[in-house]
């Protein structure tokens, strides 16, 4: 061992070899995919921007949800397998039980839970981030114009009287327009 690079390389590999937690792999995958996948999607200029934004946002969200689900699944499998092994007197075969149960839960999570969470959350969250859900409310007491161009105003007890007819025949100066 001569150079600092060699020393640090050995230190890092020793650490990974002794503390081989699946969490590191999951975290690395989630983080790298969560950053790189949306970046590459946004670089795909052959697709319209709205589709790219939705896809990129969904990919990032999927990465985050998958990571949290992975942690949750891992904890659930640990507890469930231990309880099941105790009750059925298979404590010696606990690691085997964990591996099969883990495969089932991870597959079910990938097939149902993560897509369902993403379906429920992607569009609402995307709207919040892009500011599309801000409703443009009219100011209280003011007159506003409907899409048809009809003007709704309050006349005392007569609320929301459609004054389209009056506007058609009288302009703001009070002059009559048209022949009726």
């Amino acid at each position: 061992m001569t150079t600092p690079f060699q020393k640090n390389f050995k230190k890092l590999c020793m650490y990974l070899g002794k503390n081989n937690k699946a969490l590191y792999g999951a975290l690395t995958i989630a983080l790298s995919k969560g950053i790189l996948r949306p970046t590459f999607t946004m670089m795909d200029k052959k697709q319209d921007k709205d589709s790219r934004i939705y896809t990129a946002f969904r990919e990032g969200l999927t990465g985050g949800v998958a990571f949290v689900s992975y942690l949750a699944t891992d904890a659930v499998v640990e507890k469930l397998a231990s309880k099941l092994a105790k009750k059925t007197n298979h404590l010696n075969e606990l690691p085997k039980m964990k591996s099969t149960l883990s495969l089932i839960t991870v597959s079910l999570t990938a097939l149902f839970i993560i897509p369902a969470i993403c379906n429920a959350a992607t569009k609402p969250l995307l709207d919040v981030f892009t500011g599309k859900n801000k409703k443009q409310l009219p100011k209280a007491g003011s007159a506003y114009v409907t899409p048809q161009g009809a003007k709704n105003v309050n006349f005392g007890n007569y609320k929301n009287i459609n004054v389209y007819h009056f506007n058609n025949f009288y302009n703001n100066s009070g002059m009559k327009i048209g022949g009726v």
Partner: peptide, 9 residues
């Protein structure tokens, strides 16, 4: 652990 860590890395 060292070669194992190399594989992990």
């Amino acid at each position: 652990p060292l070669p194992k860590g190399v594989i992990e890395l």
